[in-house]
């Protein structure tokens, strides 16, 4: 217990890092998911092709590997570009936090693409026609009807993606992002109490995922209040 208290500031800082990582990735996940789903449902063969490539790649490669590829790939490219300006430069990288957030968002974004696509397909066509018949433009129909209906249908699946997203933030310690797992690794080298330290990490993840689960419950309650009322 004393060991946890000794390292509590570092654990707190680490927790803040993964929470930030979570929200930054989450924003990107929503963007990838919406872009991917719209592309997959579009008439453009090119857009569909790109979106299919994206989901096949990002769901097919282990996320750990994708993280390394994104980070070192971008670093190597950046270093080469930088060297062409100044040959003295030894190494240049994207800040690990951003590379990590980006890599994780690609993976979860690929899953979200499929969830959003399914949800868009699940929208009652009659509702869309009714909105069109009222004179709404295609754009208005998208914002005022398709999107609100879509996220309601996507909610349960999306909740699972959020949990995966949270857990994936543990991976980024490998590229040096100082999240709680990184803290535990550092502490272990000093105090040689790996079990206690990793158990602490586990509890922090459990607490954060509980927050997500409870939040999703509340959002679902709001989103489905019309169904509840109609019972």
């Amino acid at each position: 217990m004393q060991e946890i208290i000794n390292w509590s500031d570092e654990f707190l800082a680490g927790a803040m890092v993964i929470i930030q990582l979570f929200f930054v990735s989450l924003l990107m996940v929503i963007v990838w998911g919406l872009l991917g789903a719209t592309a997959k449902l579009s008439n453009s063969r090119i857009a569909r092709g790109i979106a299919n490539g994206f989901t096949v790649l990002c769901r097919g490669i282990p996320e750990f590997l994708l993280l390394l590829i994104v980070y070192f790939g971008s670093a190597v490219t950046l270093t080469n570009i930088a060297r062409s300006w100044d040959p003295e430069i030894r190494f240049m990288d994207i800040p690990p936090f951003w590379a990590g957030a980006f890599a994780i968002s690609l993976v979860i974004g690929a899953y979200a693409t499929e969830t959003f696509r399914g949800a868009f397909l699940g929208i009652d066509k009659g509702l869309v026609e009714a909105a069109k018949a009222l004179g709404l433009t295609r754009f208005q129909v998208f914002w005022r009807l398709r999107l609100p209906m879509m996220w309601r249908l996507a909610l349960p699946g999306f909740g699972n993606h959020l949990l995966s997203l949270l857990k994936d933030t543990a991976l980024v310690s490998v590229i040096g992002v100082q999240g709680i797992l990184f803290t535990a690794q550092q502490a272990t080298t000093v105090n040689h109490k790996p079990f206690t330290m990793y158990l602490t990490v586990a509890f922090i993840f459990l607490a954060l995922s509980t927050v997500i689960v409870v939040t999703m419950k509340c959002i679902e309650k709001y989103a489905y209040r019309h169904l509840e009322a109609a019972r």
Partner: peptide
């Protein structure tokens, strides 16, 4: 469509 109203067999009210 802005000048033409339509009523469907299945009502199609926005449920939410």
């Amino acid at each position: 469509r802005q000048e033409v109203g339509m009523v469907f067999q299945s009502f199609n009210l926005f449920p939410h």
